[in-house]
């Protein structure tokens, strides 16, 4: 200790500086040695070159820092990658429209089940009210969250409005219900044999749902028929046909005789007959006939109104059966 003191105190500045440098060099060499050990170990263990990539791919994935492009050097495009190709028809569809398209294209989902329902209904002439009922059930299912009974008329209207948007854009654009004042007696009868027809007190329009529409009571329906057709008319289905297969031949015969149905095809509610008739009468293709229907609301009503409960198909194809043939048979 004593010697150390002596030695240290006896050193001049240059000597101290030399010692300091020596220590520094030692430290740096230590650090180098440490690094060498580290690298050597990494090499021998085989993980030294792991984070290495060849310069070509490094260049490929270089981060781009330029205005107008993202870090991959791609131009930002709002609509890019937002189109899907339909596997069925191989059209490219905007992603937001893809699910609805697929539903229609592949024939899955609620819509097409409804189409299937309608096909069954049209093949089975007598089952008109059943298919109608099913359609209405579907609609109710769709709209059940709309809520309570007091909104019932507006429910009818919203459904109809939605339907008419897709099906017949301008036909009932102002109001969804049917304005009974514009109808002739024939149409009224046709209407009342197929539809609920209860007149809303708010809109003064007729309910276009099936005869067994849950929004209105049999009492209301009967009252409307008495009001529009006179006291002789009554609710057609009040005679016990409350089952799904309600339109028995005898019953419809009775109904028809009561309404003095003449069975002529041009005002029949049958889909194919009426569309054919309208094609003969008004034009050659559907759009034309639809246009003319728009001008002549009563005819459009005949072919279109029974289909209101059915879904959005391009061609208005109501679930109404081929009534004239039945009635011809009956008569």
């Amino acid at each position: 200790m004593k010697m150390e003191d002596m030695s240290l105190s006896g050193l001049d500045n240059s000597k101290l500086e030399a010692i300091a440098h020596e220590i520094y060099t030692e430290l740096v060499e230590d650090a180098c040695l440490g690094l060498c050990f580290e690298v050597h170990r990494a090499v021998k263990c085989g993980y030294f070159f792991l984070d290495d990539t060849d310069p070509d791919s490094m260049k490929d994935f270089e981060i781009v820092d330029q205005p107008g492009v993202d870090i991959f050097g791609q131009v930002y495009n709002q609509w890019k990658n937002k189109e899907c190709v339909c596997p069925n028809c191989s059209r490219s569809i905007a992603a937001s429209r893809f699910a609805p398209h697929l539903e229609k294209c592949l024939g899955m989902g609620r819509n097409s089940s409804r189409i299937a329902n309608r096909r069954i209904a049209s093949s089975n002439n007598l089952n008109k009210s059943e298919s109608d009922q099913e359609d209405n059930d579907d609609i109710n299912d769709n709209d059940w969250s709309y809520g309570s009974e007091k909104k019932a008329p507006s429910r009818c209207r919203t459904q109809l409005a939605r339907r008419s948007k897709s099906l017949k854009p301008k036909m009932y654009s102002n109001s969804a219900g049917i304005n009974y004042e514009t109808l002739g007696p024939e149409e009224l009868r046709t209407l009342l044999t197929t539809q609920c027809g209860v007149i809303s007190e708010h809109t003064k329009k007729m309910c276009t749902r099936s005869l067994r529409c849950p929004q209105h009571t049999d009492e209301q329906r009967r009252a409307v028929r008495v009001y529009l057709l006179g006291p002789s008319a009554s609710l057609p289905e009040a005679e016990g046909g409350v089952e799904n297969d309600s339109f028995e031949v005898a019953e419809s015969q009775a109904l028809m005789s009561r309404l003095q149905w003449d069975g002529s095809s041009d005002i029949s509610p049958s889909d194919s007959a009426s569309s054919k008739a309208s094609e003969c009468l008004w034009g050659t293709n559907n759009s034309e006939s639809r246009k003319t229907k728009k001008k002549k609301p009563h005819l459009g009503l005949v072919s279109g109104a029974p289909g209101l409960g059915s879904s959005k198909k391009k061609k208005p194809k109501p679930p109404a059966p081929h009534t004239p043939s039945i009635y011809d048979d009956i008569n």
């Binding site: 060099t25 740096v28 060499e29 650090a31 180098c32 060498c36 690298v39 050597h40």
Partner: peptide, 10 residues
């Protein structure tokens, strides 16, 4: 490694 690295490191 030491022979190569140390001078450069310094």
């Amino acid at each position: 490694l030491v022979a190569e690295i140390t001078p450069k490191g310094r």
